[in-house]
Amino acid sequence: MTNTKLDIAAADHDNPDFVIDLAAWDDLESIVQIDSYASGKHKPEFWRDCYDRQANDPNFRFLVAKSGGEVAGFAIGTIKTWEFGAPTCGWVETLLVAPGFRERGIGTRLFDAVLAHFQAHGIRTVRTILNIDEHALMSFFRTQGMSAGPFIELEMQSE
């Protein structure tokens, strides 16, 4: 896999308003900004690591949606085997659309592009984990056809 033009079906670019491609180094600044706005946390190192991971891990896809050259959203899909004891499946690790670009189908196109990456590897089971209070994002994933899976997350603060 090379970090050139996206080679999957979702790159058909049938919507002239935006294109979906692999994340490029120059996109990182916008990605950091969009994420900071959404999460309230500035974490450029994390996104640089994601960019590096894409170059070294063929199972890892870091995608951006661009409109007029501007980053409108991004998504990460990665294939994992025996994660939490589960056979090979695709994980949607991130999916975020910048506030000014919402309600234009960009999230769905990013999701479809991540799915196309999984399907190209013969994977049909897709999972994600998100904050329980992120109702809009949860609603988005449900709109795509996702529902509760076989896992439940538990946590504690050790004493």
């Binding site: 329980i132 209070d133 109702h135 949860m138 609603s139 449900r142 709109t143 509760a148």
Partner: peptide, 11 residues
């Protein structure tokens, strides 16, 4: 509550 809040009629 989170489940019910994430399921729209359209979904």
């Amino acid at each position: 509550a989170a489940t019910l809040q994430s399921v729209t009629l359209q979904t």
